[in-house]
Structures are given as structure tokens and as C-alpha cells.
């Protein structure tokens, strides 16, 4: 789960990057004559929403709505008490409380007069959202468009660089430790460097990489690191001996 530093460095990712991404989403909507785009986001499936708005739900689920003609709206499962913080790290100016996501979405559709919606990756929408949305009579269409741009690639490179540098530096320190102990050492190094999330898998050569389970690491082992840095994942695997 997310428990690292979640922030928005506007030098690293200027607002103009998000303006361009939202413009791309709106162009895709225009091509299909749709009034708004729906993007699902939860604590694990947050990357598409993060790409478009810099929003990452550290907990719970949310729906991001990107109207073709108006600013994006966040339908948020989190408490309004954290909205000021959310606004400080995202592009959102409007956040609506949504303990029940679909009714809040349908209310927004009614207010705006929308009878159809685009959904980013519609077949991957969770059933709990897909089914009542479909039953509502608001027509949903799958929307696909390219989510890659130079800024995105640069952030993934930064994440990969962080993963490589820290793992290469720390790797020899695992010798003689249990994978639990080495996990702790890596968690400290990565999270102090600003990692948002981390998945660590270990292998001593007799099995596929797996989560730490108390195995003693000898002088031959490998570590697979999946690192999330400001919404951007990188996966690196290194082994000893180098």
C-alpha cells in the first residue's frame, strides 16, 4: 500500500504536462462525440488517473470525470478532510464526496445533461461499478488513446534510475541476512529516497522470486524491485554475485 511521499513537484511535472494530457483525452472524446471521460482509480490501479490528473488514492476508490468542455471532477471515496491535501497535489479544483461512487456519478450526469459517457478501458471497469452504471441507462463507450508522452517516459526513467542505483548499492549488504532483514534495509533506503510504493521479491536460486518469508540469504541471491516513484513504476532485478 502507498505509504511513501505522495507529492507534486511542479518543476518535475509542470501543470502544462497535465493540460496537454487532458487535451489529448478531450480529443479522443471529440472523436467519438462523447461529453465526458470516466477513469477508474483505486489504491492499486491508479496509474491512468495519475497520468491525467496526478491523483493517487492512497486508500479506497475514486472516479475521475473529465468533461470535454469543463475542468475535471474527482468523485472521491476519501474523507473531505483530506480534500485540501488532494487539491495541493493534483489538478483538481472540484472534488465531490462519493462514498457510493455510481450514484454520485449519475447525479453528475443528470446535472450536466449527459446521456452517454466514455470510459477509459471499459472492459476493465470493476463489476460493482460497471453493472449499475450499465443499468442506469447512461450509455458507456470504451475509449482508448495513447497515454505515453515524453514527460511520462522521463518519469519512468527517473524511477528506473532510482531503482537501479539504490539496489546496486545495497545489494551486497543482504549477504548473511534473512530476506526479512534485507527487506527492511531496502525499504528504508527506497522510501527515504522518495519511493511511494515498493514490491520486493527474493530468490536464492531454488525458486522463482517471491515475497520475503524468512529465508537466509547466503552469498548467491537475487532481488526484484518494483518501485513506484510519483506514480511511475520501474522494475529492476539484480543478483549476487554481480
Amino acid at each position: 500500500m502507498k505509504r511513501g511521499l505522495i507529492t507534486w513537484d511542479k518543476v518535475e511535472l509542470p501543470p502544462s504536462v497535465f493540460e496537454a494530457r487532458l487535451a489529448r483525452a478531450r480529443k479522443a472524446l471529440a472523436a467519438q462525440d462523447l461529453p465526458a471521460l470516466l477513469v477508474y482509480s483505486d489504491v492499486w490501479r491508479s496509474n491512468e488517473g495519475r497520468h491525467l490528473t496526478n491523483y493517487m488514492p492512497y486508500w479506497n476508490r475514486s472516479l475521475i470525470v473529465i468533461p470535454r468542455e469543463q475542468p475535471p471532477v474527482l468523485l472521491c471515496g476519501l474523507s473531505p478532510r483530506v480534500y485540501p491535501w488532494i487539491k495541493s497535489v493534483t489538478v483538481f479544483e472540484e472534488i465531490r464526496p462519493a462514498s457510493k461512487l455510481v450514484p454520485t456519478l449519475l447525479q453528475l450526469c443528470t446535472e450536466r445533461g449527459w446521456t452517454k459517457l466514455g470510459v477509459l478501458d471499459l472492459p476493465r471497469l470493476p463489476h460493482e461499478i460497471y453493472a449499475p452504471q450499465k443499468a442506469s441507462g447512461v450509455e458507456a463507450s470504451d475509449v482508448q488513446f495513447d497515454l505515453t508522452d515524453d514527460a511520462e517516459i522521463a518519469m519512468h526513467r527517473r524511477a528506473e534510475q532510482m531503482a537501479q542505483e539504490i539496489l546496486t548499492a545495497e545489494l551486497p549488504r543482504g549477504a548473511g541476512l534473512t530476506d526479512y532483514q534485507f527487506s527492511g534495509l531496502l525499504e528504508r533506503a527506497f522510501r527515504r529516497a522518495g519511493a511511494e510504493d515498493l514490491v520486493l521479491l527474493f530468490s536464492t536460486g531454488d525458486s522463482a522470486p517471491r515475497p520475503a518469508c524468512g529465508t537466509m540469504l547466503g552469498d548467491k541471491y537475487s532481488v526484484a524491485v518494483a518501485l513506484e516513484y510519483r506514480g511511475h513504476w520501474a522494475r529492476v532485478r539484480r543478483g549476487l554475485p554481480l
Binding site: G4, Q181, G184, E187, R188, R191, R192
Partner: peptide, 14 residues
């Protein structure tokens, strides 16, 4: 976030 990193490291170590 540094404090969280220290606690996270401790919990994983253990």
C-alpha cells in the same frame, strides 16, 4: 516521510 520510512523498515525487518 522519513519517519514513515524508518517504521516501515522496522516492520519489514521483523
Amino acid at each position: 516521510f522519513e519517519l514513515v520510512a524508518e517504521v516501515e523498515a522496522f516492520l519489514k525487518e521483523n
